[in-house]
């Protein structure tokens, strides 16, 4: 199954880093729901999605696990392009799952494997630096890189006000 042969979507959405910055960009890819349906997964409740990166010699392989049903309800995307060009390496080339309700550290760059699992494991940044396993974007102040200014997220989850 080639990602590019599946129905494509292009959406303007805001990604948020746990380090208090954010950027709205136009992301292109495939809905996670499409992939899950193709994989024949019908019962998504109480299951999780484990992402495993391609990895590099310097940094090794990264992993992150997120609740599957939540990701589906937030219209998560498997992204291959941003602003009309392939994802750059620093953004996660060739493919990155984006659940836009979660901080970027929950979405591994250079996605290699997606596994549906019933185990909610700690990921790289939770193990390495103690960040929250759920990774939900918190209500606080973020530097909007695209707007060159500050925005205050009033509620948890995906930032749609800016």
């Amino acid at each position: 199954m080639d990602i590019l042969d599946l129905p494509q979507v292009e959406e303007s959405r805001r990604m948020v880093c746990v380090c208090n910055w954010s950027i709205r960009r136009t992301w292109k890819g495939v809905r996670l729901a499409t992939i899950i349906e193709k994989a024949g997964v019908s019962n998504t409740n109480n299951y999780f999605l484990k992402q495993i990166s391609v990895g590099t010699k310097e940094k090794g392989v990264y992993e992150s696990t997120i609740p599957l049903e939540d990701a589906l309800s937030r219209n998560a995307l498997l992204v291959h392009s941003v602003d009309g060009a392939p994802l750059p390496m620093e953004q996660g080339y060739p493919l990155r799952l984006f659940d836009f309700g979660l901080y970027g550290y929950k979405n591994v760059k250079g996605l290699s494997i997606l596994e549906v699992t019933d185990i909610y494991e700690l990921g790289e940044w939770e193990r390495r630096a103690g960040y929250d396993k759920d990774g939900i974007i918190r209500p606080k102040k973020y530097w909007m890189v695209d707007l060159k200014g500050w925005g205050f997220a009033e509620k948890p989850g995906e930032m749609t006000d800016f």
Partner: peptide, 23 residues
């Protein structure tokens, strides 16, 4: 890692109690 706005005396931020990052 943060910009000049966080240097203000009144600026606030928060993190999980488990965070052990170099921030």
């Amino acid at each position: 890692l943060h910009n000049e706005d966080f240097l203000r005396c009144t600026a606030r931020d928060y993190y999980p109690v488990s965070v052990r990052d170099n921030l």
